[in-house]
Design a protein around this nucleic acid. Structure first.
Lengths: 200, 200
DNA sequence: TTCACCATGTAAGTTGTTACATGATTCC
DNA sequence: GGAATCATGTAACAACTTACATGGTGAA
């Protein structure tokens, strides 16, 4: 149900086509909740059937078509309902930590490769979130500005603060992962000589 | 494919029935990689067909049955292969941070409830991992001891160290989530009066 | 004898992945 | 005229969830 909530959250910023949504899901939002186009288009059609959104059909050129989706009252209600309901935590499936627990099975090279690519992965995430935070602070976030334009003056501070808060949490997580992997590299180097010794 | 790797990792510790595996997946391992019984039994049958494991059929009482699974050479090879291959990161789907980004939509009560239950959730995880670490340090982990019993002397330190390392990372993550949610509570209290004012 | 635990699954549905498929528009 | 981008999907498959379904064993 969270894909649906993510779509509603985006459409609440302003009406958008499936294509525009898809671009959002491949950028910043996609780093919190990923969704490929093959999931977005069918989901929009389902939401249309359930009247959470409605499509404004636009003609492009001579034969082109564009369906711009708007949130309906029912959709707004569903989103607010989700926001106020208890959150369902999905069970963890964390392949990196699963692997870490059995790292003695991997070759010393593979251990370093694993930890280094873990760092690279989370560095990418960290950069993404730090950029987002900088963009918010500079009042240059297109999506947020679009939302603020239709937000009452007294609610703007809150809207900005929570967005920043969310991104800070994601950045903190990325930093924790990087720290952890760096400690892992030190550990593997400490263990290294013994591992080699045992191969003799 | 990680479910398969997790099963192989457990069976490498020692032969086990589906039921025993299932118990592991509902305890400590299940906090890294969750799997319900309805996924484990069919997966074991598939792995049996692919000859990654074989089942030793044991009779219990007069009519009871028990299939104890052992890792085959092919299974061992598959596990080591997975351990040495680059890890595939699954795309993030983080409903808590998704929600956090739009918290201005929730009622002040719902915000606190969300953040408090986030803390409770991660406190539970943290406790789980700290217990595991304490158990390892006291040489009282049944699964780890079972594994160490069939491990060469010089590899034991590594085996213990990586297990501890994995759990430390999970504990660190839990702490980061708790910290973040606590900052969120402070933030919501700071914003609180204004939010109320805007309702007048 | 009854209750907790051992033991093994199936079935239906949802969600997510990967690959395929097509065509229009706009800008250079 | 060609490339990037706009635009919308389908199909097959894999993974995961939730609920259902059944029966044996062992100890109090």
């Amino acid at each position: 149900m969270s894909l649906r909530s993510a779509i509603l959250a985006l459409l609440r910023i302003g009406p958008m086509s499936g294509y525009e949504l898809q671009k959002q899901f491949s950028q910043s939002v996609g780093h919190v909740w990923h969704a490929p186009d093959s999931q977005i288009y069918p989901e929009l059609r389902k939401m249309e059937k359930e009247e959470l959104v409605f499509a404004e059909e636009q003609v492009r050129g001579t034969a082109g078509m564009r369906r711009v989706y708007h949130v309906t009252d029912a959709g707004e209600h569903a989103f607010v309902g989700w926001m106020n309901a208890p959150l369902k935590y999905q069970r963890t499936r964390d392949s990196a930590h699963l692997r870490a627990a059995y790292l003695e099975t991997a070759s010393p090279d593979a251990v370093l490769e694993f930890l280094n690519s873990h760092i690279a992965h989370w560095m990418g995430e960290l950069e993404c979130w730090e950029d987002e935070i900088a963009t918010i602070d500079a009042y240059e976030s297109p999506m947020l500005n679009r939302r603020l334009a239709v937000t009452a003056d007294e609610d703007r501070e809150e809207t900005v603060a929570y967005k920043r808060f969310a991104y800070e949490g994601l950045a903190a997580r990325a930093r924790a992962e990087i720290d952890w992997a760096e400690r892992g590299i030190k550990l593997s180097k400490k263990l290294g000589p013994k591992a080699t010794k045992s191969e003799k």
